[in-house]
Design a binder for these strands. Structure first.
Lengths: 233, 233
DNA sequence: CGTCTCCCAGTGGTCGGACCAGAGCGTACT
DNA sequence: AGTACGCTCTGGTCCGACCACTGGGAGACG
């Protein structure tokens, strides 16, 4: 009852441990990991479990496994996917402010693009759904968790309107990043901080078929969020 | 020497087979896959190999595995990452033109954003590297494969200049997509088709610190590519 | 008759021990 | 010195057993 992840599976736990070691730099890119048999003995589990853990690391792009040769650590900044982001942000124990800035730059790009597309393609029903979301945001003032979800729903609705399936796949990954790091962003939605003005402006611009205005409003939203976070750091 | 995947490992082969079945719709979202023991018998391999294959499917976001319960197929459009794209494009045997369009929309967004950032942040050395790449493109006229690589290198250089690590992670995924589907795009770089005018304009705009111009030039490049592909389809 | 509970068959998870296949390096031969 | 062989260590696959959990059906209860 004391451990944080008692029922999470041996393989998963070991995979997380190794991932942490790699991200924190205890293994350098190019280094060879201990052999599966050694790791099995070290963690006192079966080799099968070690294999499963290593397979996950491989899927995450953190190591390269080659039959006959050793399993080597890759330069994960050159091979890992976005799903590594939450762990990268926590590598030093607290959020790295420079990465936070990078994240919000990308966020601004994505939101801006989606808003632009939405202004060109939205139908009446979609616009009403967006209105509804803004209304809920106003009602939810002071409920951080709810506001956070509504903010994400707004993004999701924009993607749906854009009709771009590739953006849809992309948002799946973003969602995972978002859920795993949600506490780190929760302060953004605290009482007196979050204001859906930009969302409101966005919907108005979409109704007016003003792509540029919609995009700019969403970018402003992302920019505001970053400034808020930086001010608190 | 003839087969495409002769020595690729049992687990990998089975994972691909199952992925294909799922993407092509032979298993519907929510369906239960046969049990590991059944699959092991069906494919005449050990259960370990089946487990490994299923783990990959899970990592790809195609199935959900739960101890005690059955392994069920997920709605992959809602859970899979970008790495599924190449397989999605080939699901029907040939490239789905609507997805191709989606891809290039995203491509235009990314290239535009990177060019914009580059115009603001590039130093002299970076600009020279970009110039060098354009020069190589001109020299490489008529060598599709080389042109394709140079085009990607150009993108990569823009990302490096932007200094955004999140975009770097993103580009890792894009690169995989790109490599797996490279033949499908190779015709873009055939003799008489590919012209690095837009790249040239981009570098000029970057030198002039003209963000908007640089972004527009790169977007024009992506748009041209899409039009070329559509004209040939 | 309906509902609720409990139990067990079947699912995935872990184990261990064996053997196969590829890679790398030292050694012995040329 | 150079080269080719082969030993040894790596990961890959197989087998068969047992553990942990779920889900649904058989039975008890209202």
């Amino acid at each position: 009852m004391s451990e944080p992840t008692p029922r999470r599976g041996v393989a998963e736990r070991i995979a997380q441990t190794l991932r942490s070691s790699i991200v924190k730099g205890r293994f350098r890119p190019g280094d060879a990991l201990p052999s599966e048999r050694e790791l099995a003995e070290k963690y006192d589990v079966n080799r099968s479990s070690i294999r499963e853990a290593l397979k996950r690391l491989e899927a995450w792009g953190l190591v390269q496994i080659r039959q006959g040769g050793a399993t080597r650590v890759t330069d994960f900044l050159l091979s890992a996917g976005l799903e590594l982001l939450p762990h990268l942000m926590e590598a030093t124990g607290k959020v790295d402010p420079t990465i936070l800035s990078d994240v919000h730059e990308i966020r601004a790009m994505l939101l801006g693009w989606c808003a632009e597309q939405a202004a060109q393609k939205a139908d009446a029903a979609s616009m009403n759904r967006l209105d509804e979301l803004v209304r809920k945001m106003i009602d939810a003032k002071g409920k951080p968790q709810l506001l956070q979800e509504l903010d994400y729903d707004f993004f999701q609705e924009l993607i749906t309107i854009s009709g771009n399936r590739v953006m849809g796949l992309f948002s799946n990954v973003v969602k995972d990043v978002y859920l795993k790091g949600r506490e780190q962003f929760l302060s953004l939605y605290a009482k007196g901080v979050f204001d859906p003005v930009h969302h409101k402006k966005t919907v108005e611009a979409i109704r007016a078929r003003d792509s540029r205005g919609a995009a700019e409003a969403m970018r402003a939203h992302a920019r505001t969020a970053l400034e808020t976070l930086e001010a608190r750091a």
